[in-house]
């Protein structure tokens, strides 16, 4: 499940923020901000994509780098949200 989420997010980042450039390696822990992939507009695009792709609602208070600044963090956040929705 986690791999599926990571692949989805990685694909979105490459398509939307890197304009199809696959030469850059995005590890699970690569910071999206430090590498200039995401700015203040990009964060909102990312949230929009996550909500649409995974059927979850991202609360304002959840929009923090700890949840959204890397592929790994996003996957963990999405899984946690899905688990709590299912519970």
């Amino acid at each position: 499940m986690s791999d599926h989420i990571k692949a989805n997010i990685r694909g979105f980042i490459i398509e939307n923020f890197l304009f199809g450039d696959t030469s850059q390696v995005i590890e699970d822990t690569t910071s999206l901000i430090d590498n200039g992939y995401v700015d203040s507009t990009g964060v909102l695009e990312l949230v929009f994509h996550i909500e649409q792709s995974f059927g979850i609602k991202v609360a304002d208070s959840d929009i923090v780098p700890a949840n959204l600044d890397s592929v790994g963090a996003i996957a963990a956040y999405v899984e946690a949200k899905q688990r709590s929705a299912a519970a």
């Binding site: 964060v43 304002d60 780098p65």
Partner: peptide, 11 residues
Amino acid sequence: QNQSADYLTAF
């Protein structure tokens, strides 16, 4: 204006 303190710190 919509960003959290954590994001502002990072940006």
